[in-house]
Design a protein around this nucleic acid. Sequence first.
DNA 1: TCTTCGTATGAGTGTAACATCATATGAAGA
DNA 2: TCTTCATATGATGTTACACTCATACGAAGA
Lengths: 114, 114
Amino acid sequence: MKRGLSDACNLFFLTLSNPTRLAILELLRQRDMSVTEITTALDQEQSMISHNLTPLVRCGLVFVEQHWKERIYSLNHETMEPLFQIMSDHFDRYCAKKAGEINCTTTTKKLANI
Amino acid sequence: MKRGLSDACNLFFLTLSNPTRLAILELLRQRDMSVTEITTALDQEQSMISHNLTPLVRCGLVFVEQHWKERIYSLNHETMEPLFQIMSDHFDRYCAKKAGEINCTTTTKKLANI
DNA sequence: TCTTCGTATGAGTGTAACATCATATGAAGA
DNA sequence: TCTTCATATGATGTTACACTCATACGAAGA
């Protein structure tokens, strides 16, 4: 990562650090969806979904296409699948998972390598 | 990414969505450093660096070891290098970079694939 | 053109994260 | 034990983000 991209990274990760947007990404991982479908699936306000879709599109994490009256959102699988994989690997290796709670035990290198 | 890890992902990305912490990660990418070294290199307050190191360690993005009076922080290369790579690829493919500003042009799938 | 559907946008408000300042802790040497 | 160095912690004011509510916009059908 070259210098000067920090702002972009910041925005990228800021976009990802939101429960609603993460839920949208998980949904779109399964299949493309319209705003109404996402709204229904997540049982949230339509305006909230729209507001959260905006930064996802702006960062290129999801794409959007107009189909008749609907706007169909789709995941950027090329970026997101490897990202999901890294997350999964990281949590497996460095964080103890028990019953939904996250508890990183990596305070030292030695502990981390166990 | 299995369900239930959303909170962990949220925390993970929240930790990454901060200019100071991103700068620390870029620094540690080069070599291990003490708090004082990081503070000097980034020309910031020591307490600020300490405050920002805490979440990085908690998420397992950096490790820490005590060496005499100093605490040496090191990057979790195993997680961070592939992450840096994804970011780099993503920006190359989906975002127009010009002179430090970020400008994603991916409003539709077709545009994105150009 | 009037209505309905699907979606986006804007204003207002509460909350959470951040930087800062001050202080505490802990280890090592004098 | 007193001082100094290295780092961590706590409290506080401000900023920025996210949710909600209301409304606007655009497309398609009647």
